[in-house]
Amino acid sequence: MPRRSYDQYCAVARALDAVGDRWTLLIVRELLGGSRRYTDLHADLPGVSTDMLASRLKDMERDGLVTRRRLAPPGASFVYELTPRGRALLPALTALADWGAPALAERRATDAVRAHWFAVPLIARLAGHFAAEDVGVVDIALDEGEFHVDLDVEAPGYAEGPAENPDVRLRMSTVTCTDIADGRLSLAQAIADGRVAVTVPGAADGEGQRKQTTAV
């Protein structure tokens, strides 16, 4: 079936032709964290039906946003990953996250949450905070899980789980992370207030733990 189009000679309309459907940008959010199997995507997109997810992935392949490849044995399963055009949507998602962050003031009882969903709005905040330091990879631990962000200027991104060799580890509550992501609280102030525990892996004893406190 041909995909619907706004049929407008406009850059915004053309962009929405490709990414304006429900779930598409959230799939991009997941794939910004690296290659994912279909089952992994479905698990981290609560509420999407299997038919809808399959349909969206086909549309995104057709539009050149994602590719599908088979892993080498013994895995031999298929994974989806973003193309360069798909990864180029990171600034758009960052802008949407900044715009939508104030709506996170109160978490609803029906709201699902994954730790790595905070990665996109945090990348720019962390890049600004660590701009004068030699920090490239930052681990972030929340009660819901752990993820890490890569602050590489040319190819910023994130991935689930701890990094193998992070430059800095941050531990905080989801409330604190939300405040930082929203811009209501700077990371510097959160550290000063004792709301973030900062660890520098590999530093000498007494220097590795910049701030040891209970994250709240």
Rank of each mutant, 00 (worst) to 15 (best):
L82I: 11
R29M: 04
G34A: 03
A95C: 00
L26Q: 14
E81Y: 14
T94E: 10
R29P: 00
L96E: 07
S77E: 14
R87N: 10
G64Q: 05
V66H: 03
R69I: 03
L93V: 10
M60W: 08
A18T: 05
R22L: 12
R69H: 11
G33C: 06
T83Q: 03
L90R: 12
P73Y: 08
W23H: 03
G86T: 08
K58R: 13
R87I: 06
G20Y: 10
L26I: 00
P46C: 09
A97Y: 10
D21W: 11
A76R: 12
G33E: 05
W99P: 00
R69E: 09
L26H: 08
I27V: 15
V48Q: 03
D51R: 15
G34R: 08
R56I: 05
D21A: 15
D51T: 15
R29L: 04
V19I: 15
Y80R: 03
L93S: 04
R85E: 13
T83A: 02
W99F: 12
R56S: 04
A88R: 10
V79D: 02
D44L: 02
M60E: 11
Y80A: 03
R70E: 14
G86Q: 08
D51K: 13
V66L: 11
G75M: 05
S49I: 06
R29H: 13
E81P: 03
T24E: 15
S77L: 11
D98S: 07
G20H: 13
D51A: 14
A76N: 14
R62G: 01
G20P: 10
T50Q: 14
A43P: 00
R62Q: 11
E61K: 15
